[in-house]
C-alpha cells in the first residue's frame, strides 16, 4: 500500500526556501515517515512542484546528504539511507540548549503560557521518535 508523504513550504516566509526544504525533509526523516530505501523526486521535478529553482532543491539535498540522511544518484534522484544516530556530542547539546532557549523566549514573548510550551515540546519529541510509533 502506498504512503502519502508531502513536503510543504511557504514562499512568503522569511526563512529561505532551501532551509524550509531541509527542515521539512529532516522532520519527515526523523519521524520515520520517509524510510530507508525510499526514493525522493529529482531536484528538477521537486523544484517545479514547489516553484523554486532546482539548484535550491539540490542545495537542500546536498545538506541532507552531508548529514548522512540521503544518498544522491545522478539522474535518479535521492534515496533515503539507513542512517544510524550518532552519539550526541557536548557541542550539539549546547547548541540545542541555546536554540531551544531562544525559541522558548520568542514564543513566551508572543504570549504562549509555559504549560502549553511544555505540552507541545513533549508531544513533538514523542512524534519525532520512530520507536514511539
Amino acid at each position: 500500500m502506498s504512503r502519502s508523504v508531502t513536503l510543504q513550504i511557504d514562499l512568503s516566509s522569511p526563512t529561505p526556501a532551501y532551509r524550509q526544504i531541509v527542515d521539512g525533509l529532516r522532520t519527515l526523516l526523523v519521524s520515520g515517515e520517509l524510510r530507508p530505501g525510499d526514493s525522493l523526486p529529482t531536484v528538477r521535478s521537486l523544484g517545479l512542484d514547489l516553484g523554486v529553482h532546482f539548484s535550491t532543491v539540490a542545495e537542500a539535498y546536498r545538506t541532507l546528504s552531508e548529514e548522512g540522511w540521503l544518498e544522491l544518484k545522478r539522474h535518479h534522484g535521492a534515496f533515503v539511507t539507513d542512517r544510524r544516530s550518532p552519539a550526541p556530542s557536548p557541542a550539539a547539546r549546547v547548541e540545542f540548549s541555546t536554540r531551544l532557549r531562544q525559541l522558548i523566549a520568542q514564543v513566551r514573548a508572543a504570549g504562549l503560557p509555559t504549560k502549553d510550551i511544555h505540552e507541545e515540546l513533549t508531544a513533538s519529541a514523542r512524534e519525532l521518535s520512530p520507536s514511539a510509533k
Partner: peptide, 14 residues
C-alpha cells in the same frame, strides 16, 4: 493557493 506550495514525495512509481 497563496504562497504555500506542496509537493508529493512518495507515491511516485518508477
Amino acid at each position: 493557493t497563496g504562497t504555500v506550495r506542496e509537493a508529493a514525495l512518495l507515491e511516485q512509481p518508477q
